[in-house]
Design a protein around this nucleic acid. Structure first.
Lengths: 149, 149
DNA sequence: GTAATTGCAAAGGATTTGCTCTGGT
DNA sequence: ACCAGAGCAAATCCTTTGCAATTAC
């Protein structure tokens, strides 16, 4: 088994695709679900949705794809008040935050350049580096407020 | 079994003390640990600290007390990036946010009246009610940055 | 063909709960 | 005495991992 060609590098990504490189039925299914679900959903909910649609995808696989998609930037992730991670397709590429309905997951992207600057400045003032920040607003959207209490 | 006295109401709190009403050795131990630990710590870390000190307190009890203290407002709680809840005694009574070292838990309270107003306003604009918000800044404090990478 | 992916099932880790026992008051 | 509170193990929940079986390319 001679290899006159140069050994291919341990490539981890493919341009245009992401961390995961093969076009599998499962990858497509997860992306598809995210493309169609408008609001934030947990991995478990997405998994349930897939099963509902008759797609046969393992829960672990759903988790793996969501993580990969999130890393690749095509999917937003946030932690809800219970500590569960919710995912949603990312509309804009830019950094932003969310106003999210705690009941139905409906979410509005809110731009917050001012917040970013504030965070950076506060951190700098105290000599902190490698800054990350979390800004989430939760509430009841009008619809859910009407329905529930 | 006559009861000539009036039945006492199902009192849940005691003025000056909190959700939990009895002065137990364990309650005191948890409060004490919080009083002395300057930075954010997980329930498990606080439990470990207590054992280190020779205090015999069950983990569940630590969780129960931390929750109670948090509800009573004497203790701040935040979720770190891994999703774990961290606790720390609350210096000021007022609402505030934190700039927290992801490595050692050291934390600076940052006042953010502007953020509050912004959150309220964003929520109102979209008709959301029963608003809650999360604003956390994580980074490496100067000391940890020097020590690590 | 061969390495990336899957799918379970098991493992992990934080938190909560059931229930009996203990100790404040 | 009475009942809030403690202990501890079992139960929950979300998420990750190990590994053999698949499957894209």
């Amino acid at each position: 088994m001679t290899m006159s060609e140069s050994p291919r590098p341990p490539q981890r990504t493919v341009p245009g695709r992401g961390t995961r490189v093969r076009a599998t039925r499962q990858a497509e299914a997860v992306s598809q679900a995210l493309a169609e679900l408008p609001e934030f959903r947990s991995a478990q909910e997405i998994h349930a949705e897939l099963r509902r649609r008759g797609e046969r995808v393992g829960l672990a696989t759903v988790y793996r794809h969501l993580q990969a998609l999130h890393q690749d930037g095509g999917v937003d992730a946030l932690r809800d008040e219970r500590g569960e991670v919710l995912y949603r397709r990312c509309d804009t590429g830019a950094h932003h935050h969310h106003l999210t309905c705690r009941s139905c997951g409906r979410s509005v992207e809110v731009e917050a350049a001012a917040i970013e600057r504030w965070a950076e400045q506060v951190a700098a003032e105290h000599g902190f580096t490698e800054i990350d920040h979390t800004v989430e607003i939760f509430g009841l959207c009008p619809d859910c407020a009407r329905r529930n209490g």
